[in-house]
Write a protein that binds this DNA or RNA. Structure first.
Lengths: 206, 206
DNA sequence: ACAATAATACCAACCAGTCGGTAGCATCAT
DNA sequence: ATGATGCTACCGACTGGTTGGTATTATTGT
């Protein structure tokens, strides 16, 4: 928190560059050029490339937490509809270029999960922290509407994260977010079915 | 098809090494050492690293298609239960080390989608080909059981692929496949709910 | 003055790709 | 048959450029 402004600028740059090129292909010089910094300055703020990755993961987590914490859907009182609001919100931010809305954590995990355990663990903690926040709404909704259900709030929350991560991969494969949005609509539908939300009538047009 | 045996050996090695370290971090020397080949030999069979990646994507697609084509669930006649058999099969192969069951296409897409369009397109085609095969069973099941439903077979098929890909990311984050299996159970449950498969009784133990 | 911060110059290791060459095998003219 | 020819598969030293990281010096804020 309350980082040095230059450090924050480097981290913001890292979020974008790493999401564009992946962790390994991102060079420290890339970050330096894109953030208007020199190598000497970079190594004053970070011990090395792996240190940057770990800090970037936490920075990304902070940014994401902040984004959802202040999203308009948070004012919904019913936890089930707040959960659905979360899904709708995640759909609504599938805009702009792919590096803008894809997940740094998923990107880095894919390449370094075996070679850089420290980065893997940092990403894992950020994902778990985010999943926990979603899980608290899931737990409230479950307790209120489906207290007997056999699935766990944590498990459903991880499923939600899996669909999000998988949607990003399909978006990257396709070059655009349309398929991703459709996948998240299926996720929304699943939650509606799980909680037995009344479905709108299938209108047969005259 | 019917590659030179040495070329096949290199490709098999590439599947494992790239899934372990990612595309960028994999060096041609890594592949050569692991496959008992020299650099000269490698460049006799491949034009370069990107050429290897594209061939490896197709090789992975062939391997995966072959795997599901001969899986036991294919003998199920009802397309809906064959579809559920597919999910169960995907759950059942979440065994061994992560590089053995994770997806090369998703791994490579995450890092190179923007920097190597040719690799992105090769991965995209393999995913689409696989999704199409699943979609044909989805379409049969839909026509038979839910012909009025508003969702499309292709869309649901992509959703299935998204959950699979996202599950692999969570498995990498966690260092094991347990969470992934739980996510795929939610996917199975979604399909059961979509098709209104009768759910087993929630037995209250005496 | 004196930290904190940033810039410059530099290095050793590494990596994709090249190049000249060899071993083995098939073809074919004589 | 046999030797000349050429083709495929393979080898391994080498190169030019890149990369993560360091050592040193300069600037800035207080």
């Amino acid at each position: 928190m309350a980082h040095h402004p230059t450090k924050t600028r480097i981290l913001d740059t890292a979020l974008h560059v790493i999401r564009s090129k992946g962790y390994t292909a991102t060079t420290i010089d890339d970050i330096c050029v894109a953030s208007g910094m020199t190598k000497g300055g970079f190594f004053h703020h970070f011990n090395g490339k792996q240190d940057l990755a770990i800090a970037a993961a936490q920075h990304f987590g902070d940014m994401a937490d902040n984004l959802v914490a202040h999203a308009p859907y948070q004012s919904i009182e019913d936890p089930l509809f707040r959960l659905l609001g979360y899904i709708d919100f995640r759909i609504s931010i599938l805009k702009g270029s792919l590096p803008q809305f894809t997940c740094l954590l998923g990107t880095m995990l894919q390449e370094v999960y075996e070679t850089h355990p420290a980065i893997r663990e940092a990403c894992n903690q950020c994902i778990n922290a985010h999943a926990s926040k979603v899980a608290s709404d899931v737990a409230l909704a479950k307790e209120y509407y489906m207290p007997q259900a056999s699935w766990s709030a944590e498990g459903l929350s991880y499923h939600i994260q899996a669909v999000l991560q998988g949607s990003f991969i399909l978006a990257k494969a396709n070059g655009g977010p349309q398929v991703a949005a459709e996948c998240l609509q299926h996720l929304r539908h699943y939650i509606e079915l799980l909680f037995e939300v009344p479905q709108p009538e299938e209108n047969e047009l005259p």
